[in-house]
Design a protein around this nucleic acid. Structure first.
Lengths: 209, 209
DNA sequence: CTAAAATCTGAATTAACATTCGTATAATAT
DNA sequence: ATATTATACGAATGTTAATTCAGATTTTAG
C-alpha cells in the first residue's frame, strides 16, 4: 500500500506546515491576536483549507501546544532515565529542558504567555489534557527528587517542593533569556542552576581548623 | 476647598469601584474573554460611563495592573529597607511577596496569565511601563543580593542570577498555590523557600569527627 | 427655584474575525 | 479520455463586542 502511504505522508507534511506557521504566529502574538487569515497566509494555504485539517482555531492551537509539549516531556524522560545516579538525573533534566527551550524559543514564549489558558479555557477537554500533562511532569521531577533522597544525594525534604523549587529556578532563567536575549547560550546556565539548587546561595560559615 | 475635595474623593471612589470590578473579571477570565458590558454590570455603571474614567478597555486593564503592581513593589521596598541584616532583608522580601499574593490571589492569577502582554501588546507605552517596573524590581532584589555578598552572608556569585533564582523559587511556589489551593497558608512556605535558597537541596557530606 | 454644567445611560454603529459553503482545481480510477 | 472523488479556495455570512453619542438625569451655582 505504497500509494496510500505517500498520500498519508503528504497529508502529514501539510498538516505540519500549518502547525509550524501557527506556532510562529501564536508565539509572537498570542492566541487572540492571531487570526486564521494570518495563519493561512503564513502557511500558504487558503483559510478554508485550514479547516480541513483542524476543527477550528482552538483545535489548531491546542494541538500545536500538546504536540510540542509531548516532545519536551518525552525527551526529558529519556534523558533522565539514562542515568542511575540521581544527581546525573537532575543534571540531565536541567540540560534537556534548557536546550529544548533554546531550540524552541518561539514556542516557549507562547507557553509562558498562554499558560493561563490552562484555567479559563473555552474548551474544557484540551485544557484538562494540558493540566494532566503538566502534573505528570511535576510527578516525574518529584520522582527524581525522591530517588535522590533515597540515595542520600538530596536532603530529606518534601520531594514535590524540591521539584517546584528546581523548576522555578529553571523557568526563571529561561524567562530572563526569553525577554532579554543574552549573549551566551541558555544551556551554559546549567552549571550555575545546578550549583544554586544543590548548594544554595548562602555563604557557608567556615570552621576554623 | 472642601467642596472640590469631596467631589474628587467621590470620583476616585467610583474609579476604584470600576477597577475592582475589572480586576475580579479579568482575573477569572483574562483580558480578551472579559467584555466591557460585563465590567459595566459588575461595577453597576453603564457601559458609556466606563469610558468617562478610562480611554478604552486596554487603558482600564493596564491601569489596574500597574496600580496593583505599584502596591506590591512599594510594600516590598518598605519591608526590605526596614532591616539592616541582608538575610533579614531576604526573608522580608519573601514574606512580603508571599503574603501579597495570598491576599490578592485573583490579581496574581491574571498577572501570570497575561504576563505575555508585556511583550506583544497593542499599546506600546503601557507595555513599556510594565517592563520597566519589572526590571527595576529585579534590580531591587539584585541589590539585596549584592549587600548580602558584601556582608559575607551570601556567596560571591552573580547577584542578578541569584535574584532570578530566588524569584523563580518564589513564583513557582505561588504558582502551585494558585492552581492547586493547598490547605496551609502560602506565607508558611517562606521557611522552606528561605532554606532551599540559602542552603540548597543537596545533601551535605558530613565529615567524620 | 431655575438655568447651566456635569455626569450617566444603553441602544445604535462599526469593525474585526471565525467559520461556512458553493465553486474551482487536481488526483485517481475506469 | 472521461468520470468520479478528493482537496483547495476565498468571498460571503454571521457573530461578537468595543466604542460612540444623543438624550436623560443629576448636581451645582446664582
Amino acid at each position: 500500500m505504497q500509494r496510500k502511504s505517500r498520500k498519508e505522508r503528504e497529508y502529514q507534511a501539510r498538516r505540519s506546515d500549518i502547525l509550524d506557521a501557527a506556532e510562529r504566529l501564536f508565539a509572537s502574538k498570542g492566541f487572540h491576536n492571531t487570526t486564521m487569515a494570518e495563519i493561512a497566509q503564513e502557511s500558504e494555504f487558503a483559510i478554508g483549507t485550514l479547516y480541513q485539517f483542524f476543527k477550528n482555531k482552538e483545535d489548531l492551537y491546542y494541538t500545536m501546544v500538546i504536540e510540542k509539549l509531548g516532545l519536551l516531556y518525552s525527551s526529558i524522560g529519556n534523558n533522565v532515565s539514562r542515568f542511575r545516579d540521581s544527581l546525573k538525573k537532575v543534571e540531565g533534566l536541567i540540560k534537556t529542558q534548557l536546550s529544548f527551550f533554546q531550540d524552541n524559543r518561539d514556542f516557549f514564549a507562547i507557553f509562558i504567555k498562554e499558560r493561563g489558558s490552562l484555567e479559563a479555557t473555552v474548551n474544557e477537554d484540551f485544557g484538562e489534557v494540558l493540566r494532566q500533562r503538566y502534573l505528570s511532569y511535576i510527578d516525574l521531577v518529584a520522582d527524581v527528587m525522591l530517588k535522590g533522597i533515597r540515595q542520600s544525594k538530596l536532603k530529606d525534604l518534601d520531594a514535590r517542593e524540591m521539584a517546584w523549587a528546581l523548576l522555578g529556578i529553571i523557568n526563571s532563567f529561561v524567562f530572563q533569556w526569553i525577554i532579554n536575549p543574552q549573549k551566551g547560550t541558555l544551556v551554559s546556565k546549567s552549571v550555575i542552576i545546578m550549583d544554586l539548587f544543590l548548594r544554595g546561595a548562602g555563604e557557608v560559615i567556615k570552621e576554623e581548623v
